[in-house]
Design a protein around this nucleic acid. Structure first.
Lengths: 201, 201
DNA sequence: AGATTAACCGGAGAGATCTCCGTTTACAAC
DNA sequence: GTTGTAAACGGAGATCTCTCCGGTTAATCT
């Protein structure tokens, strides 16, 4: 009973209706442009809906909430980034020793945060319920690397602890209020990573 | 010219009018009770105002915004905590070696986050503009300790990095989703602190 | 006590987030 | 083409945060 006519495409939500897909694209496009024009800080979904000639309900049905829309906006770049550290050239991708990959990964994350500051600030603020998909991926990846680099430690916790200082709020604060440069931040992280991967059990 | 009649009390905002002080107390009291009853998650300043028999404007004039009210609610406990690590008995207070004080401090911070989870979650979410007063104090304190424990490193950055994993969001996630215990979190932090304070330049 | 005034008060209102539900529409089956 | 229906649509509305401003009051000076 209740058999489906066409087999579902795995991972895809059963095919999206044409109007739905069109609206999704339009909303993302309009939102991206609004952010380019007036910054991410004051992105209003009401306004996005109006500019996209779509009801507010539609925006929320497509993306769930603010965080969902921001996640969708980041998605493209995020995919590329993930493929880089999962299967790209070393030292970020496989082929380099684990401890070097750890540092390369943390540095790449810093660059990503700096590049997407506005959107990530918004995302971090709004993301109270679920944990972001990207974070989960980073954590799995870093845990694996740390497991190789220092097999005796609690790699899962260390991964959380190394990821924690790489967030948009803190980095913005360090750069704007503390006057730190990106290089100083990266070198601090490298120091931390080195200490962790070299230390005894 | 423009001389003041009575010298201002240093640090105090020039004395608060009686009705203003009464309202401040009432608002804090009502807010604390509402949180005790229904959790911090859904604290509405509108509702607080209504329950305190006060206009919304009054709440915002007294506390600035949500973050301000939450900060005021935390204040008491916070003062005590600060005096403990600034002038209380060792190993938290002065008297113990710096590296032991670092660990004691981080552990005390974890306990504080666990004890105040609800309010701190709210605070972290709302605190986008200014950085919280408490954080600044923690950072100064930890930077000083790290400066003693490992004079060669960038103590200011390490302080940020060690404080970053001690936030309500992450700890709630680690406990609820990852199933970690408080002891596991503390031991992970201790490991990290040890690695940092022992590592070479 | 009476007058003066700076500080405070209340609550309407702007603008935002998100929900709900009656109406409309795309698509598949016939 | 017609038809049936699940999915999508739109936008009014419930709440919330925070601002603004005309009216009120506590504290001070005479």
């Amino acid at each position: 009973m209740c058999e489906r006519r066409s087999l579902p495409i795995v991972g895809q939500p059963q095919q999206e209706r044409a109007d739905a897909a069109r609206n999704r694209r339009k909303i993302i496009e309009v939102a991206a442009q609004m952010i380019a024009e007036q910054g991410a800080e004051e992105l209003s979904l009401d306004e996005v809906a109006r500019a996209a000639c779509v009801g507010v309900g539609t925006v929320y049905r497509r993306f769930g909430d603010r965080a969902g829309l921001v996640l969708a906006l980041i998605d493209d770049r995020e995919r590329r980034f993930q493929s880089e550290f999962l299967s790209g050239p070393p030292p970020l991708g496989p082929g380099a020793p684990a401890d070097r990959r750890v540092v390369a990964f943390l540095h790449a994350l810093v660059d990503r945060v700096v590049a997407q500051q506005g959107l990530l600030l918004l995302l971090e603020k709004e993301m109270t319920k679920r944990t972001s998909g990207p974070y989960q991926v980073y954590h799995v990846h870093l845990t694996a690397l740390l497991g190789q680099a220092c097999p005796h430690a609690d790699a899962a916790y260390l991964a959380d602890a190394l990821l924690a200082p790489i967030n948009a709020r803190l980095i913005a604060f360090q750069r704007e209020e503390r006057g730190m440069t990106i290089e100083e931040i990266k070198s601090g992280l490298a120091h931390l990573a080195r200490a962790v991967t070299c230390a005894g059990p």
